[in-house]
């Protein structure tokens, strides 16, 4: 009886969590997209997303979550290879700066300063990035 009710409770909780988690994630990535368009969130040369200025707690949480998952993917990718996670992340940074940053978007260059790509500006790059 107790075991059965525990199972029912666990199943119910799992279903409830799934219901709550799915739309929240979808909403958050929409919020991050809007923040990128607004220039308050942007790609960094180190291969992670960064926050520039004031953002909501939800946006901050989603940026943190994305960065944690990015790091996990980079780590997995370099496992067993003579490549550091930082090197992999920097290679991502080269690519995101060059291909993701649209005019009006903010980005952080490798010297740590935030810039906004202007209309007609070439895609940004960082020191040591190979030419695309």
């Amino acid at each position: 009886m107790t075991r059965l009710s525990t199972i029912v409770l666990a199943a119910g909780a799992a279903a409830g969590l799934a219901l709550v988690a799915m739309p929240a994630a979808a909403q958050e990535s929409g919020a991050v997209r809007a923040a990128i368009a607004a220039g308050t969130v942007g790609e960094k040369a180190d291969g992670y997303l960064g926050i520039r200025g004031q953002v909501s707690g939800a946006v901050r949480a989603e940026v943190d979550s994305i960065n944690i998952r990015r790091r996990a993917v980079y780590t997995e990718r370099v496992a067993g290879r003579p490549v550091s996670v930082e090197q992999m992340a920097a290679a991502i940074g080269c690519r995101t700066l060059a291909t993701r940053v649209q005019p009006g978007h903010a980005y952080q260059s490798d010297d740590g300063t935030w810039r906004v790509r202007g209309e007609g500006d070439p895609p940004p790059t960082a020191a040591n990035c190979p030419a695309l």
Binding site: S29, V32, R33, I36, I66, R69, R70, V73, Y74, R77, V83, E86, Q87, M88, A90, A91, I92, C94, R95, T96, R100, Q102, A127, N128, C129, P130
Partner: peptide, 27 residues
């Protein structure tokens, strides 16, 4: 410093990571 030749070697990996994980690279 991460040298250019290292970044050059990792170019394809970077491309693959971004393609395989679109949810981590919103735009």
């Amino acid at each position: 410093n991460v040298r250019q030749e290292v970044l050059l070697r990792l170019e394809r990996d970077a491309e693959a990571i971004i393609e395989e994980n679109p949810e981590l690279f919103p735009q």
